[in-house]
Computed example of a mutant assay.
Amino acid sequence: MNYCVITADVRGSRQLNDRAALQLQIEQTLAQINQKFAKVVKVPFQITIGDEWQGVTENLAHSYEIAVQFVEKMHPHVLAVGIGEGAIATEWRTRSADMDGDVFLRSRQALDQSKKKNQEIVFSTTDKHRDMIVNAVSLLLQTLRRHWTERQHQKVILYKEHRNEQKVANILGVSQADIHQALVAAEAKIYLDCEQKLNDFLRLIYEHNNL
């Protein structure tokens, strides 16, 4: 049976002055993700070494959704995220660092490619043709994100959460027109639609494999 391992690392973290604040941000992010995705997380996301963390999920279905939330919650830090799919060769442990198997190797390979190619989220699964498509879409989404200003980033992420321009405007104390203009400039609705389609595609793979 194949599982999914997601390994993430903060790029350039050794150059940061306040590493304690970074560690706290990582710990808070992991707690939020572990709680939100508790139904699919098999081994909770935990710090493995330094500013790297890893966890195991039951399949690829929510893998991009989890990975991109790491990217969003750790902003403005830049991440490298490797998503692997494959078998687990050892017994289950409470820490993924104490386990082994093809899925861990693929996740590590994907993480290395993420750093080498400067691509935040990289997949290495049992289907290389699928990887080509998913990694291409992931890179296009990243390219859109990296063109956002800080204010656009804030507004897009809030809109993603609430899906209502007026609600975001109320939160930020600005006009609905201001939010609308920022979303248009950031190509937010195209971005969110493509992101949703990628998530749907990964879920369909899981459903197809379990027919």
Rank of each mutant, 00 (worst) to 15 (best):
S13R: 05
S13G: 02
R14E: 07
R14P: 04
R14D: 02
L16M: 00
N17F: 00
D18A: 08
R19S: 06
R19N: 01
A20V: 14
A20Q: 12
Q23T: 00
E27F: 04
Q28L: 14
T29M: 13
L30D: 03
A31F: 09
Q32W: 11
Q35S: 15
K36G: 00
F37W: 13
A38P: 02
V40A: 05
K42T: 10
P44T: 10
P44G: 11
Q46V: 12
I47R: 12
T48G: 13
G50K: 00
N59P: 10
N59I: 06
N59G: 15
L60V: 12
A61D: 10
S63T: 09
V71N: 11
V71F: 10
V71C: 12
E72M: 08
M74W: 08
H75R: 15
P76A: 05
P76I: 07
H77K: 13
V78D: 11
L79W: 01
V81L: 09
I83S: 01
E85Q: 11
G86W: 06
A87H: 11
A87L: 12
I88A: 00
A89C: 05
T94P: 01
D100P: 05
D100E: 10
D102A: 00
D102L: 07
R106W: 09
R106G: 06
R108E: 09
R108P: 07
R108F: 06
Q109M: 14
A110M: 08
L111G: 03
L111I: 01
D112M: 13
S124E: 13
D127A: 13
D131C: 09
N135A: 00
A136K: 12
